[in-house]
């Protein structure tokens, strides 16, 4: 009888795909939270985020995914930090 692959291993395989594929993404937190998978962090663009979440839906099919992935800002800062 085949048993389902443990979710922990599926998450690691997803992380391998993130790092080793076209995205080369190592900076996102991906972890099991209860019965769901949390994906959290910052990415360079909205299109890049879509690709991350598309991959997640494929690799983690059947699991609930909670995504909190923000797009990094590219504007110049409006303040400086003074270091006396």
């Amino acid at each position: 009888m085949n048993t389902p692959e443990p979710t922990e291993y599926r998450i690691e395989h997803f992380r391998d795909r993130l790092a080793g594929g076209e995205l080369a993404e190592l900076g996102l937190l991906v972890e099991l939270r209860g019965a769901s998978v949390l994906i959290r962090g910052s990415v360079p663009s909205a299109a890049y985020r879509d690709r991350v979440l598309d991959l997640a839906r494929t690799e983690l099919a059947g699991l609930a995914i909670h995504a909190d992935v923000v797009v990094a800002g590219h504007a110049q800062p409006d303040r400086a930090e003074d270091l006396p």
């Binding site: 910052s42 990094a72 800002g73 800062p77 930090e81 006396p84």
Partner: peptide
């Protein structure tokens, strides 16, 4: 960049 959330940070040193 994901930490500073901007194109760059600026520090003033003396």
């Amino acid at each position: 960049q994901p930490v500073i959330g901007k194109a760059f940070a600026i520090y003033h040193l003396h």
